[in-house]
Amino acid sequence: MKGMTTIVKKTTQLIAGMVFMYGIYVIIHGHLTPGGGFAGGVILAGSFILLILAFGSDFVKLMKEETGSTLYENLAILTVLLLALSGLLLGTRIFFMNWMPKGTLGQLISAGMLPLYNIFVGIEVAASILTIFLALVIFKEEMKE
């Protein structure tokens, strides 16, 4: 896949970082404001997709990136599952139990395990959307040959 013109590249360079930071903001404020893991993860994936579209990538590199994102996706979702199972193993022994201290309402560090779930779901969604994008691009690249 070829990259785009210099204008696009320069603009993407300026924007991608901000998009990335905004995604992280949405994820870590997931338990306080609208948004959360899924919405933030989509934004994170958006910044990566912008970069790949603007700068282009060759086939081998795309395959390597897809392998990496699949691995991250699986690790993140496994962590979410382990967090859910930790409720079953520790504390009150109930699946998905929010056993951590809840803190005060409205603080950034509060709501027990919800921020943790949000962070890992965010990584999972970002990685999986990137994987979907890369897989479809790889299909398209394969077709040319």
Binding site: A135, L136, F139
Partner: peptide
Amino acid sequence: LMAVIIRIYR
């Protein structure tokens, strides 16, 4: 579905 459609097209 999209992945399947691309494969079908191929």
